[in-house]
Simulated assay, not measured.
Amino acid sequence: MPTFAAPAAQTSLRHAVLALSLAVSLPAVAQTTTAAPRVLSELKSIRVKATATLPKAGGSASDREDCPQRVIQPKSAGAKLVAAQGWAVMADVPLGPYRAVSFAGQMQAGTSGTCAATQGNIAVFSNDKLIALAYGKSADDTAIGNLVPLEGGTVRLWDGDIVPAPAGDLHVDADGTVRLTKMADEDTVCQGRAKLPNVYGMPIDKARKALAAKGWNPVRAKASGDPRQAMLFKHGIIETDDCSGTGMAYCSYSYAGPAGKLSLETAGEDDLPSVSGYSVKCR
């Protein structure tokens, strides 16, 4: 009997070692699996879902060859995957621990270098793994365009219209939820040293009052002889720097604030045109 005890013990030992090695290897396998986050859209025009599958491109390169200003070269692994599917990548930005990539299938050129984008989507990647997708109600709408990172980790979504407008804000909540919300009432700029109110779409006379309430004061511009500038001067908009006489009739304005300089832009031929964009240069 003793002569058979050693082989049996050796067999049991081999089984134990095999079981232990399997148990040790299981956590490593689990770590390679990216869990789908909770996703939520508070915007009626845009839906969002957790998914690991990219949609098929709805257009071709010829559909956007007249809009090179809207298309960027993909840099992240996720953006390269999107481009490989035949989509035009419009933005590739950080979103908390993730990467947000906006892309479109079709684009149509307009006047003054403008361009409308349709069949827009936002892909959220964890490294090179797709975890969520945001998309419009139909392939023909312009709900999704560019993405711009803001201070604090938020990403601002702009629509794909001829004159782009902010459509909402993309966040990653503390619990990991990927959430799309309406645009914030104000943004922090210059590393939190100043606040900028949401003046998009406001007529310039109302926008300048909202800006003044946050410490952004108009900087008087020099008269250039431009008739639109002269008209805006008559309305008391003394900070009007320059206006375009063609295309979308853009005008620019300058303000000085608590942490730097603000350049504002309006579009349209109204006597008091509405704000279409801004940029801040921090001190």
Rank of each mutant, 00 (worst) to 15 (best):
Q191W: 13
G105F: 13
A134Q: 05
L157W: 12
D159Q: 06
G152M: 05
S138H: 13
D141S: 09
H171I: 04
A132V: 11
A91P: 05
A165H: 15
I131D: 06
D173A: 13
A143S: 14
R179L: 09
P149V: 10
A83P: 09
D141G: 10
R179Q: 04
G152K: 11
V178H: 00
A165V: 00
G160A: 09
K80V: 06
V101E: 02
A117G: 01
K182H: 15
P97I: 01
S126K: 15
D173I: 06
K129M: 04
V82R: 01
V89G: 02
Q119C: 12
H171A: 11
V178L: 08
D175F: 13
A165K: 14
G113V: 09
G168P: 04
N121Y: 10
A109D: 08
V178K: 01
T177S: 09
G145M: 02
V172F: 09
D161N: 15
N121M: 12
P149W: 15
S102I: 07
F103C: 02
T188S: 15
T181F: 06
A79H: 05
G168C: 04
S112V: 00
I162W: 12
V82W: 01
M183Y: 11
R179W: 10
V101K: 02
K80E: 12
V93F: 04
G78D: 11
A132K: 10
G110A: 11
N127I: 08
G160Y: 00
D187A: 11
H171E: 10
V155N: 01
A100S: 06
L95D: 04
D128C: 09
P97C: 04
A139P: 14
A184Y: 03
D187L: 12
G160N: 11
Q119K: 07
D173W: 10
V189I: 15
V93S: 00
A117Q: 08
Q85T: 12
I122L: 06
G145T: 00
G120A: 08
G145H: 00
G113K: 03
G153M: 04
V172S: 03
T177Y: 02
Y98S: 04
P166G: 13
Y98V: 08
N146C: 06
N121Q: 07
T142I: 06
T177F: 02
A100R: 06
K137A: 10
A88R: 04
P149T: 13
S112E: 12
L170R: 01
V148I: 10
S138N: 14
L81W: 05
A132G: 08
V189E: 11
G145D: 07
R179A: 07
T181K: 08
L133W: 15
L95S: 03
M183K: 11
D141I: 02
V148Y: 15
W87C: 05
G153Y: 02
A134G: 15
A100V: 08
T154W: 07
T142V: 15
D141F: 03
D187R: 14
G160P: 02
V163E: 00
P164N: 06
M107W: 10
R99L: 09
L95P: 03
K129P: 00
I162V: 15
L170D: 05
V148L: 05
Q108I: 13
V178G: 00
V93Q: 03
P94H: 11
A132M: 14
G78T: 00
A104R: 08
L133V: 00
W158F: 12
P166W: 01
G160L: 03
M183C: 06
S138T: 12
F125Q: 03
